[in-house]
Design a protein around this nucleic acid. Structure first.
Length: 370
DNA sequence: ATGTAC
């Protein structure tokens, strides 16, 4: 490329109002990415926060394919499955949740579309910000759209946030060991592996929805959305990388709040300036280390397990409970408000958690009562 | 977010 081009930096637009606090290092990461060879445009979402090398909550368009801009959890996304359940008492539902750290037995699922090659973690949720949540539609915000999706106030849904587990990590590592943060040497080969991980992620979320519905005695419907927020696609002839950003052009997307606040199902209508994308969640306000340190001083384990909205959090890992405390995240209403004010999305319904599953409870329940 | 090393 010419020296003139190498001196040019791609455009950076951050879709956050002045009142929305964005960590300066995350904006700096956007500008760092903008200097990469071939980069055209970087769009930061209102949930933008610093990641490892690349920002989280960004869509990045480039003539060059960079695997590290998708990250290791290729195919991570959020699905919403309507469920029917007679009674949703948090304690009873929480006690019946299956152990989602244990994989499904592929042999028990003959006839299904189980991919060959990587079955050892199928049906598992993973860690970090991943979860499976029984939630209730709290408010209908666009009646016509909600009716089209068959959703109304009081309806129960399963929200599944997970990805491709070790498979995506393996794909990124295979690239990184040779090329580091460089471009994909064989874009077609990377894309083929990437697409496998995206399919694996969708299947993983569906298997978890089925497992949980079975275990809690719920009837499972077809998903109203299942959109992946770590991916790359060829769009307008260039590579559009998304890391913590969901395709927001004509898709309905669940934007996750925290384990103790609302989440929002929105209709995305983002244009090219926004990288055809919308936010994927509330966005971290604190690093995991800060959340752990400050959370221990501020919260009890009990208040994190039984939230202010009356929901239960199933999580036998105390460190994870603090790292994922609602106070470690930005206010989801601020993120949704920014998307609305920039014309990127329209809220359809809000949900509130009933039971959020993070990882199996440690000690067996006492007294034997279920 | 992840598997692996400390």
């Amino acid at each position: 490329m010419s020296p003139a081009q190498s001196a040019t930096s791609a455009s950076v637009t951050v879709f956050a109002s002045p009142g929305s606090w964005i960590e300066s290092s995350a904006v700096a990461q956007c500008h760092q990415v903008a200097t990469l060879n071939g980069m055209i445009h970087v769009a930061g979402m209102p949930d933008l926060h610093p990641g490892k090398g690349a920002p989280i909550g960004a869509a990045m368009a480039s003539t060059v394919l960079y695997p590290f801009l998708v990250g290791s959890d290729i195919g991570c996304g959020i699905a919403v499955y309507p469920v029917r359940l007679k009674k949703a008492v948090p304690e009873r539902v929480a006690a019946r949740f299956p152990d989602l750290d244990q994989p499904v037995d592929p042999a028990s699922r003959s006839g299904e579309d189980i991919p060959a090659g990587y079955t050892e973690q199928l049906g598992t949720v993973g860690r970090g910000n991943h979860f499976v949540e029984l939630a209730r539609v709290d408010a209908v915000l666009d009646g016509e759209h909600a009716a089209r999706l068959g959703l109304t106030t009081g309806d129960l849904v399963l929200i599944v946030h997970s990805g491709s587990r070790g498979l995506g990590e393996r794909i990124l590592r295979a690239h990184t060991e040779v090329h580091g943060a460089g471009a994909a040497a064989d874009p077609a080969a990377y894309l083929a592996a990437h697409d496998d991980a995206v399919r694996w992620g969708h299947l993983n979320r569906r298997l978890m929805a089925e497992r949980v519905a079975d275990a809690i005695g719920a009837q499972l419907g077809e998903p109203v959305t299942d959109v992946c927020h770590n991916s790359v696609e060829i769009r307008d002839g260039v590579y559009l990388h998304r890391k913590g950003a969901a395709p927001g052009d004509g898709h309905d997307v669940l934007i996750a709040g925290t384990r103790g606040t609302h989440s929002y199902l929105v209709a995305g209508h983002a244009g090219p300036d926004a990288g055809h994308s919308v936010a994927h969640g509330a966005g971290r306000k604190m690093s995991r280390a800060d959340a752990l340190r400050r959370g221990r001083a501020k919260h009890t384990v009990e208040e994190l397990r039984r939230t202010a909205v009356g929901s239960l959090v199933v999580c036998g890992d105390r460190q994870l409970l603090f790292e994922e405390a609602p106070t470690a995240y930005k206010r989801i209403e601020q993120v949704i408000g920014d998307l609305v004010s920039y014309g990127l999305a329209t809220p359809i319904v809000s949900t509130l958690p009933v039971v959020t599953y993070k990882t199996a409870d440690l000690a067996p329940r006492r007294g034997g009562r279920r």
